[in-house]
Simulated assay, not measured.
Amino acid sequence: MSDSNWTDRIVGARMSVDQEFSSRIAQSELSSQQWSLVMTATELEIDNPDDPENAQMVANTDKLDQIMPELENIESGMGAMGGGGAGGAGSSSGSSGGLVDSIKGALGLSGGSGVDDAKRDAAEQLTAEYADELQAQIKSNGQWNSVCEAAASETSD
């Protein structure tokens, strides 16, 4: 079930898109650390690889729920270190947040589901944009047909 064959073929394109996409991440509500975590939970797939003309690279974000508490922990940690974020007033008020909130978040007990929904929406939008950019890069490199062929052969195994 490994898709390393076709994904190995696009390493160079991914590196190029990663560099170009960093400015898009800087303009988003996700930090670069949060984006890295989102990408570890995202699987890139090719829908309809048998038909390169109509095939599309998509970002499968089904595993995002598993990392959402950690996204909040990263944000909390950045606020506590003075690294920005939406920490706000009272960040020096001892234990009335920080550690307790981090533990609650890790256990999925934090009450701020609105923040989680906003982060998840941002992550889904950004991963979709990333997949589109990556597909465009692979096409411009002239690799799209061979990548689709490799992906199609893996799905038929």
Rank of each mutant, 00 (worst) to 15 (best):
E124Q: 12
T61Q: 05
S102K: 07
L44P: 01
Q56H: 15
N54Y: 13
E45D: 15
Q125G: 08
V38C: 09
M57Y: 14
M81T: 05
P69C: 11
G88T: 05
E75T: 02
V115I: 11
S96T: 08
Q125F: 03
M68C: 04
S36W: 06
G79L: 10
L44S: 05
Q66F: 10
G114H: 03
R120E: 15
S110V: 02
Q56S: 14
M68N: 07
L64M: 07
E43D: 15
W35T: 03
E43H: 12
N48R: 11
M78K: 10
E70I: 02
D121C: 04
D117H: 09
G79M: 10
E124I: 02
E72I: 08
E129F: 01
L64T: 03
M68D: 10
Y130K: 08
M57R: 03
I103H: 13
A55V: 01
A86Y: 14
E53V: 05
V58N: 08
A122R: 00
T61H: 00
G105W: 01
E75C: 00
S92A: 13
S91A: 15
M78E: 15
G114I: 01
S102R: 06
D116H: 13
E43Y: 12
S95Q: 10
V38W: 00
G90D: 05
D50M: 06
D50K: 00
L44E: 02
S36C: 12
G90T: 01
T42I: 01
G87R: 04
G108P: 01
S92I: 05
T40F: 14
L71K: 04
A128M: 04
A106G: 11
Q125A: 15
G83K: 05
T127N: 12
T40Q: 13
L107V: 00
D117E: 11
D62N: 08
T127M: 11
E124G: 10
N73Q: 06
S110A: 13
G111K: 12
N54A: 15
T42W: 03
S36G: 15
L107I: 00
N54T: 12
A122G: 08
A59L: 02
I67R: 03
